[in-house]
């Protein structure tokens, strides 16, 4: 299962592409969620102060959420992997 140096380089390139893609989808979801949650008044074509503030708080809160859940995910995933290793051997 171990990779040669050139295979590792190929893998890294692919993962970098994936990371760009994932960042894009993360950003897209942020736009979806925060626009949907914060913008509801279409009597004007410019964002109101209230809407702008809501978007700013939504982005901040979503990033904290993302970070917190990513930490939990890493812990839980590590625990699960360790458990599966124990079962296998």
């Amino acid at each position: 299962n171990s990779l040669t140096v050139s295979e590792q380089r190929e893998l890294e390139q692919r993962l970098q592409k994936r990371q760009v893609k994932e960042f894009m989808s993360l950003f897209g979801n942020l736009v979806d969620n925060c626009f949907t949650a914060c913008v509801d008044d279409f009597t004007s074509k410019a964002l109101s102060g209230r809407e702008g503030g809501c978007i700013q708080r939504c982005v901040a809160k979503s990033m904290t959420t993302q970070t917190r859940l990513s930490e939990r995910f890493a812990e839980l995933n590590q625990a699960m992997t360790a458990e599966m290793q124990n079962k296998r051997f």
């Binding site: 736009v31 925060c34 913008v39 964002l47 978007i55 990033m63």
Partner: peptide, 14 residues
Amino acid sequence: AKFFEAHAKISDHL
């Protein structure tokens, strides 16, 4: 119009 404004704003915040 609001979508474009929000899109730019969110990009900056991020």
